[in-house]
Write a protein that binds this DNA or RNA. Structure first.
Length: 732
DNA sequence: AAAGACAATTTTTTT
DNA sequence: AATTGTCTTT
């Protein structure tokens, strides 16, 4: 057997990681240091030289995309090492949720589930919670369903069920009541949300030691990617599986931990070292992606963070071009600059559109850029946004399929009953829900009863009965047909196709196109080889929930990428434009008050900057129109944290206004002064609060509000035209 | 029961 | 600004 492909092209540190002896390892790998590569090669190494079969390897990633990539790389490697190796048979590579789901499908009985349990996505969960909050007769404005979901998921992510929580105050008591009711509903309807997948599978192992032992023996090797993004329960899951006998190989970068706000615990990295004192730490610090200047800039920014595990990226590459910083008048000027710069670069070199990316803090910033790109006719692709399976019309269709597969799915029932409208209104539903609540039954059972026995109007009974009959018939009639035919039958006989086809209220035509696309997706769908689910429909439903799919399909077309910095993690481009570098935008105004959050923003900046291979372009706007009103922000602190000698500044003022493309209107009052001749950044004085700095402004004319950070009195928002503010006289 | 006016809301995202 | 959900009207 030739193991050389496994080591080819690896540097000393990478090689050490790949060939490490069998014991626990923590690999701290900086951006662009080849961590995914190391992970794939490590698995190849384990199989080729340590005598493991691929089926003895379990590797976890965070996204489906990463899982697919990993699987492909390993397959290619193994094929090279040992031609005809049966291509990674039996290997478990997937997301935490995907693997947990597989476990629950295999051991549904032991996990206390019904065989046909359904997965509840975030949207389903919110709807269900809304229903529950209403049923409990609580004030929705005081207990918003979204917040309830947040509260419940937060506890589940920490491994706590309702019974583990001791309420100390009335508010917590109420949240707990919601949690309990939610648990009961999910139980009764056979529904499992994302957090539940993990918690259930963890409990499955805890409560069935023999089963756990089986998996420990089966997977002596457990590998985790993006370890800094694991939450409490994911960590517990890995720890339980590894136990004392297994071998954990975890890869991460504490400087790229950007998901703390959704429960990820960077501390898990340290905790791993506490829990496995013999684990050796290896650092991958050589970066193969970016120029020296880009790395220097990124390193300088991240150096401002507290409590890092310590790591300094270096490269043998040239320092490259300086970091460009563009100061725009406003967001339109900024977008114009970005697009013109792209055109210029493309004219001067052989860059493809796909080598260019614009990254921003929040999705709201993408619109202007999009308009500018359209104006100049450049192809682009916005990543993120609504996924295919999250679209309303698709979810409507899926609700029918879910009911066909599992009648007791209350979430699907609520969605499908009256979509499209078929005369089953609030009153009727109220009655159905009431019966369900008193009998502790699913909505389906309750509806069956109501359609014949309840005290409903004959009309309503009939409508209800027709709906129930429709589902039963769809199930019966299409049982032996292909998945695509089933979907097609659902669209036709449910009336959804006619409903969306009619074009509704100004509704976009692609709604109906999406329905056709769903049929086509179904016809192309192939259940995974080693899937524990025997029904094609059930497998398809799980696929839709776990893998919502990219919104735009045109992946092959050469186009500029637009996305949030979060979405850019793991990707790289020759030229990266980081726009909206303004205090209050990035770092976000919701983060500036807390050190921890600010650190996370800074890590996000680090992630964004290190996406660039050749050229990094940073920009900020003096004025930005956001949510309908004007904002005047100071340049982001992250800009100031980039050493000056790395920067080449481009001032907007050098460009005449007449150079603006005709379709973008010239900026009104762009860099103008605020009323009273003030500008952001000025020193001001207030008779009562003393001296301070004008840091931000919002609104225009007489409504302009400004934020002043007073030297003594703290920060305050004042209406400029009323506040007795004066410009401070400069002291000598 | 369904359409239309009105008000509130707006980080980041995966599964 | 624009989307989203709630309330009102017919």
């Amino acid at each position: 057997m030739d193991v050389s492909p496994l080591l080819e092209g690896l540097n000393a540190a990478q090689r050490e990681a790949v060939c490490a002896p069998l014991s626990h390892r923590l690999i701290l790998a900086g951006a662009g240091a080849g961590k995914t590569r190391v992970l794939a090669h490590r698995i190849g190494w384990l199989c080729a030289t340590e005598g493991f079969r691929p089926s003895q390897v379990l590797a976890v990633t965070f996204t489906n995309k990463a899982a697919r990539e990993m699987q492909q790389r390993i397959r290619a490697l193994l094929a090279e090492v040992e031609p005809g190796y049966g291509a990674a048979q039996g290997m478990w590579v997937g997301t935490f949720h995907g693997l947990a789901h597989r476990l629950l499908r295999l051991h549904w009985r032991d996990a206390g589930l019904v065989e046909s349990f359904q997965i509840l996505d975030a949207d389903d969960q919110n709807r269900l919670l809304k229903r529950i909050v209403q049923d409990l007769e609580l004030d929705e404005s005081r207990f918003p369903p979204r917040q309830a979901a947040w509260w419940i998921n937060g506890h589940k992510d920490e491994g706590r069920r309702a019974k583990h929580i001791q309420p100390t105050d009335p508010i917590t008591r109420t949240w707990l009541r919601i949690y309990e009711a939610y648990e009961a509903t999910c139980e009764r309807s056979g529904l499992v949300d994302f957090a539940e997948l993990l918690l259930r599978s963890l409990e499955l192992w805890r409560q069935h030691p023999a089963l756990l032992e089986h998996y420990r023996l089966r997977f002596p090797n457990v590998l985790v990617d993006e370890f800094q993004d694991t939450n409490t329960i994911q960590y517990a899951w890995v720890r339980l599986l590894v136990g004392d006998s297994g071998c954990a190989f975890v890869v991460g970068d504490d400087d790229q931990a950007i998901y703390g706000w959704r429960g990820a615990r960077v501390e898990n990295v340290r905790r791993f070292l506490d829990d496995y004192p013999h684990a050796a730490t290896l650092r991958l610090e050589q970066n193969y992606r970016s120029t020296g200047n880009i790395l220097d800039a990124a390193n300088s920014v991240i150096a401002h963070n507290h409590s890092r595990l310590g790591k300094n990226l270096w490269t043998s590459a040239d320092s490259g071009a300086p970091i460009l910083v563009y100061s725009a008048y406003n967001e339109m000027d900024e977008a114009r600059f970005v697009v013109e710069d792209m055109e210029r670069r493309r004219a001067e070199s052989s860059l493809r559109f796909a080598d260019l990316a614009v990254l921003y803090r929040s999705n709201a910033l993408s619109r202007v850029l999009e308009e500018s790109l359209i104006g100049r006719g450049l192809p682009y692709r916005i990543h993120g946004g609504l996924k295919f399976f999250e679209r309303a019309e698709i979810k409507d269709s899926m609700a029918y399929l879910r009911l066909i597969a599992h009648r007791h799915d209350d979430a699907a029932f609520e969605r499908a009953v009256n979509t499209p409208p078929r005369g089953i209104g609030q009153r009727t539903l109220e009655a159905v829900r009431h019966v369900a609540a008193t009998r502790q039954s699913s909505l389906w059972e309750s509806a069956t009863w109501c359609a014949h026995d309840g005290g409903l109007a004959a009309r309503s009974k009939q409508a209800l009965d027709r709906f129930l009959g429709l589902i039963d018939q769809l199930d019966g009639d299409t049982r032996d047909t292909s998945l695509a035919q089933r979907v097609d039958a659902v669209l036709d006989r449910s009336g959804l196709r006619a409903h969306y086809g009619a074009g509704g209220r100004g509704a976009l035509e692609d709604r109906s196109d999406n329905l056709d696309e769903l049929v086509s997706v179904a016809s192309r769908y192939m259940p995974p080889d080693e899937d524990p689910i025997d029904s094609e429909l059930a497998a398809f439903l799980a696929f839709a929930a776990l893998e919502a799919g990219e919104a735009q399909a045109s992946e092959d077309q050469d186009s500029v990428s637009l996305m949030t910095m979060h979405a850019a993690k793991g990707l790289e481009f020759d030229v990266v434009y980081l726009v909206g570098l303004e205090e209050g935008v990035f770092p976000s105004h919701r983060s500036v008050d807390e050190d921890d959050r600010l650190d996370e923003e800074r890590r996000l900046a680090y992630v964004g900057m290190t996406r660039a291979r050749q050229q990094l372009v940073l920009s900020h706007a003096e004025t930005r129109r956001l949510h309908g009103s004007d904002h005047y922000h100071m340049p982001s602190r992250f800009l100031r944290e980039v050493p000056e000698h790395l920067i080449q500044a481009v001032r907007a003022a050098q460009r005449p206004l007449s150079a603006y493309p005709a379709r973008v209107s010239p900026p009104p009052n762009a860099h103008d002064e605020l009323p009273k001749g003030m500008k952001v950044g000025d020193r001001v004085v207030h008779p009562k609060f003393g001296e301070g700095t004008l840091t931000e402004a919002e609104g225009s004319g007489a409504h302009t509000r400004v934020q002043i950070v007073f030297d003594q009195a703290g920060s305050k928002w004042l209406v400029l035209s009323y506040a007795p503010l004066e410009r401070a006289t400069r002291r000598s």
